[in-house]
Amino acid sequence: MKTVTLDINQKTCVLEVRDSELLIETLRDRLGLLGTKYSCLEGDCGACTVLLDGNNVLSCLILTLEAEGRKITTIEGMSPGGELHPVQQAFIDAGAVQCGFCTPGMVLASKALLDKNSHPDKEDIVRALDGNLCRCTGYVRIVEAVTAAAKAMEKTS
């Protein structure tokens, strides 16, 4: 066991963790941040996506101890005051959510893209979401949602 200090959704958490504990286990099972999903656990699906220093990464392939000193954002950190982030609003408006299982990962991957590239074209969006699988929507509405979110974010900036 080791003591680790984590910066999760702009809050500092000091925890005792097993050396072999994965970040997904810490987030879900200790901290109750259930928006991060268990799924393939092999890096294929993106359901466990979180942001690490602004980049979308897979929490099923990161040891919790490796996340020390980095800024971790989960889907719960996207709307701190309860107000939806423009990406979340765009997913609702475009009907880009069906069962919702992939949605936290999709939203976080989209945020990571839009924070770096405020005018993405369709190809940029498809590429940025290439690590996130969706079994329901067929992706068309998801791409539309990210395009709409980019426009909404441009207006508010």
Binding site: G46, T49, N55, N56, V57, L58, A109, R127, D130, G131
Partner: peptide, 9 residues
Amino acid sequence: VATTPLRHM
């Protein structure tokens, strides 16, 4: 190589 999140890791 692989996908965007895997290239970030």
